[in-house]
Design a protein around this nucleic acid. Structure first.
Lengths: 263, 263
DNA sequence: ATTATGTGCGTACATTAGACGCACAAACGT
DNA sequence: ACGTTTGTGCGTCTAATGTACGCACATAAT
């Protein structure tokens, strides 16, 4: 099969098994050495970057589709994933023409010669925005069929993206920061056992500002979501920091009481 | 035209001019004598109640579709309307069969005799949830083509609704209450000029609990969103309460700085 | 006149966020 | 060996905020 045949069968699969008019976009946040990253893909045959996304199978829950798409891009599952807004402006896709794109990719004529009515394969989409928090080092960025590259970008160096994707990142970050004030974060971002500094550094990275070490300590312990473990040094003392671990039940209780999403 | 022909042309219009797979549902809150109400419709030919909804025209912004649907049900426009969650479980519509419903309404056979493939007109939907705040007395509840009745229900006497609509109301109320803590509410719910008691009563109704009159006074004045007007009695005094009015610019500034939705 | 009621405004206390001081132990340099 | 530096745990202080409640005053009813 040549490229246009592969694309054709891909498009047919979409038409037959996925919901029309609905897509989803993922703002995948990663953390590495105090830097907040976001995973972007480069559109096939172009220099334009955008957020990875996905579509919903006809027999699949919306949230499940988001988890699946996340898995396909990162190789990870069971991660923190949260819907934050649905985008539906008619002109969301300004400056983008499906037809023009296929032409640039040299696929328009081959497809037409296969008897494809290109317009019928693409309509305007409503897109559900999700954001995810993942452990940077564990991710295996994987491009999808419509992209050439998939890689991390520093959050403050994200270029002009296609569509309304810059807006999406802004709103996702804003939602995440607000959420941080009433929910614990970190379960899937840190190793099983971690030091207080590591947790604080994560919070500082997300919030984009320094926190007072001592106040952070007080507040997080007040949440009653951490348990302190014993550590190697003979004396209870210091320099080798204590390790902490999340209390799983309490952690999930806090998540649930603030979030009764039903998907 | 008989009923089935009307319905048929309605369905055809939907197929041709509206996005498939996407719908929206409205949780419309009203307030009357300290009671919080929600607007429900009764499904045609059945005793089942549900939330009013709508669909999105192919050339229409998602938010615009929500405003239009709200207008169609209430006769009002330019109201407070906010997206709160998108629902997409596959089994959202359990216990509901489009075909069975048409049968009950005596419309299945007439439609089929008109050459309609019923299944092709209906598929599973992703639904975007919005909530709205409206002035109870100004509303003119209007059923849509699929419902027999449209009327207010006390919020604590809402019956078991079709689909996941009880969940939607719960989540909408929760979102509204949270929003109340960082945004002013009331512009379209109260008359142009109102007393402090009226505003407080509105807040108490939404929050479902009594507030201290003096503390409420302090906090709301701190927001710097109200201006006090002069009133009739000769002496500046009391018994005839002062009237207040929202400072429009400040009010909208507060709304905008907390909400950068892009639709 | 006296009492009850509604209204505007003030005070007092508890809780919280934020800034910062200090003690102690390990690691490092001389 | 010894002082210095660094990281860590824990305490104190202050400002801001939410909440409870006291009080003065004017009208309306008795």
């Amino acid at each position: 099969m040549d490229r246009s045949e592969i694309l054709l069968s891909f498009l047919k699969d979409y038409r037959d098994h996925y919901l029309p008019s609905v897509s989803l976009d993922l703002v995948i946040f990663g953390f590495h050495e105090g830097q907040m990253k976001v995973l972007l893909i480069r559109f096939k045959g172009s220099q334009d970057w955008l957020l990875p996304g996905g579509r919903v199978r006809k027999d699949e829950d919306l949230n499940e589709a988001a988890y699946r798409s996340l898995r396909e891009r990162t190789g990870l599952e069971k991660l923190f994933l949260q819907q934050f807004q649905t985008f539906g402006k008619v002109d969301r896709l300004t400056h983008f023409s499906w037809e023009e794109t296929l032409t640039k990719m040299g696929l328009k004529e081959p497809l037409e010669s296969l008897g494809v009515d290109i317009a019928s394969f693409w309509s305007r989409d409503i897109s559900v925005g999700y954001y995810a928090l993942v452990e940077y080092t564990k991710v295996n960025p994987t491009p999808d069929i419509m992209s050439d590259e998939c890689q991390w970008w520093d959050i403050d160096q994200v270029p002009q993206l296609l569509f309304d994707h810059n807006d999406m990142i802004r709103l996702a970050l804003k939602t995440l920061r607000r959420q941080l004030s009433y929910q614990p974060i970190g379960y899937n971002l840190l190793p099983e056992e971690f030091t207080m500094s590591e947790l604080q550094s994560l919070y500082e990275t997300i919030l984009g500002r320094k926190l007072d070490r001592r106040n952070f300590y007080k507040q997080i312990m007040n949440y009653d979501v951490l348990e302190r473990l014993e550590k190697r040094p003979t004396i209870p003392a210091s320099k080798a920091p204590y390790l902490y671990r999340f209390k799983k039940e309490r952690y999930e209780q806090l998540l649930n009481e603030e979030d009764l999403s039903v998907g």
